[in-house]
Design a protein around this nucleic acid. Structure first.
Lengths: 334, 334
DNA sequence: TCTCAGATGATCGACGCTTTCATAGCGTCA
DNA sequence: TGACGCTATGAAAGCGTCGATCATCTGAGA
């Protein structure tokens, strides 16, 4: 009832243990006849090399740890999927390590726990404060890279990032070009400093000679967006909103509509991420499309480079694009 | 620059290697004085036990593999989160193994790959055909449990499941009680046989003496729901729809509305899952709430029992509940 | 026929940790 | 006081695999 080991294979095939190992790893040539016998024995017994023993002996990990503050939100889940796809292709397994808060002890526990496994490398999802904290505490001997939105906090670590600052500038400009006097921002929780989305928004406004209105801070929950929408509805001058993500944008729209404003008639709304449901909303949401799965692929590629070369690779920048749908329009002329 | 090993700790603390091991694992009493010294040395060196070596020596895995057909969809992601939370609490790491198709080779590759790691057990998300296939090919020596929606395909394996059949009956009855003549069903991809949601729907109709209309098969994509909605709009007798999940329901609603039908005026729609955005839809979606995170907790508990006792535990049934919001109402009187 | 490569197969430690197993120390009781 | 039992500790033996080292067997060239 116990899994077969390499010695069993050797016995069945009538060869020595190292010969089996060589056949399996293909490092040294083995006669066709013996290889045949070994393969047959492997198949017959259903033999699987023991990963623990293998990584102990070869000193090489076989898994990639992904540190994430969350696994259910769209952007996170999609990025993790991208990493998983690329890792699977390259023969690695992905272990998930959720870092619930940026609290030192929590972060340390998560890292410690993960480090107990035979890791080949780590990817940190630097999308939120726990991510930033995890990156800061990552031991230097472990090859690590980061997936970020809008630049990384640690320039010494190579990262793949969405240029959200750029995207936010574009989105804000788009709204201004439509004729809006100003653009309000409903923000996702910040990463310690300011999110690139917020920075870009502010920059675009300043460039246009407009003093940015106060930021409305919301959480990740769409319901927080709803509250923000209700608040914005009270301000008659608020005709355009850039939301920190699509869930928030949807909440904002609902809050606005429930407060008697129409979209895009009275208020234009732009989101971030291109959530699968965004296009089905009424009205379909104008948003900034982010290729999270692609980000996952890219960041894994970076990690492979880091593991093989040892040297940090130059970072990869990904450019999100604005998808114009029907939640945005010219402001009502007054 | 290499991570410290147990021998380093022993040397620094002035004790033997096994003593360090005993302090760390707390299996055998060690004098307070030595324990003190060992702890100090561990802290000083930043020692982390090597997981590979540990599981090799103790013959016990330290991780839980989760086999899933997908990781981004709401129900999957939330269940995985529940498993991860419970596993983390119990000191296990979670490795994700995505099984993209039910194709034999694909499933085998995924399982083989995961089995290379030091696994303590496995959880299969039996939500779709890949899940069913993975469960079928799971080796018997590995403690495994399943998280299912509406009963498992393999009664020999203990599972936690959502009683979706029951929930579908309730939802369908609710619509009939409102006065609808019949209820249409837009189905998620089947699990080989029929989904419990579909079975319950059909059963409720038959119980009411109504011959079930043809099922409309859609994919997982909300856009498939849209097409279904457009089709349903052509049928004047279609006044009530039970959708396989909320994403589909949202697509269906959009398709109906774009085809000139109003909700719930002309057509009532019920979804499944209570997706976070469902309540923000216009109108807010009546749906069957599923506690996926709780399902994850439960199924992990089952796995722990299986790992400790060796014997399969009785299965756990979870009862989803109908959340009535504004997408359902009485049919227009004609 | 003998020697010397070249090609394969087998032997022998690691790898870092856990787990018997044996031993030294110490108190207890006859 | 000596035999006994108990506890804390150390020494040594694996756990399953890989890599380097050693042995052997083949065939070619002289």
């Amino acid at each position: 009832m116990k899994p077969p080991v390499i010695a069993d294979v050797a016995r069945v095939a009538g060869v020595s243990v190292p010969t089996v190992s060589r056949v399996l790893n293909g490092t040294v040539p083995v006669s066709a006849e013996r290889r045949e016998r070994v393969m047959a024995a492997v198949k017959k017994l259903g033999f699987r090399p023991n990963g623990a023993a293998r990584s102990l002996a070869s000193q090489a990990g076989s898994m990639i740890a992904v540190f994430a503050g969350n696994t259910t939100r769209y952007g996170y889940a999609a990025t993790i999927q991208g990493i998983e796809e690329a890792a699977r292709q390259a023969g690695y397994m992905v272990v998930i390590s959720v870092v619930e808060t940026a609290d030192g002890a929590t972060v340390e526990r998560a890292i410690d726990h993960a480090l107990g496994q035979p890791l080949a490398g780590a990817v940190v999802l630097e999308f939120d404060p726990p991510g930033v904290a995890a990156l800061a505490q990552m031991p230097s001997w472990l090859p690590a890279v980061a997936a970020a939105s809008g630049g990384s906090s640690d320039e010494a670590i190579s990262h793949a990032y969405m240029d959200d600052r750029h995207a936010a500038i574009q989105a804000t400009r788009y709204l201004l070009d439509l004729g809006h006097r100003t653009v309000h921002h409903v923000a996702i929780p910040s990463m310690g400093v300011e999110s690139a989305r917020m920075v870009g928004w502010r920059e675009a406004l300043r460039d246009a000679g407009i003093e940015p209105p106060p930021v409305i801070h919301a959480g990740w929950d769409p319901l927080a967006g709803y509250d923000a929408g209700v608040r914005l509805a009270r301000d008659d001058g608020a005709t355009a909103v850039l939301a920190g993500n699509d869930e928030l944008a949807i909440g904002v729209m609902k809050g606005l509509v429930d407060s008697g404003r129409s979209i895009p008639g009275d208020v234009s709304v732009i989101g971030f991420d291109d959530h699968p449901l965004s296009q089905l909303w009424v009205p379909p949401l104008t948003t900034v499309r982010q290729d999270f799965v692609g980000l996952g692929h890219q960041v894994f590629g970076l990690l492979v480079g880091r593991m093989e070369a040892g040297e940090p690779r130059p970072s990869v920048r990904m450019v999100p694009d604005l998808v114009v749908r029907q939640s945005t329009g010219r402001p009502a002329s007054r």
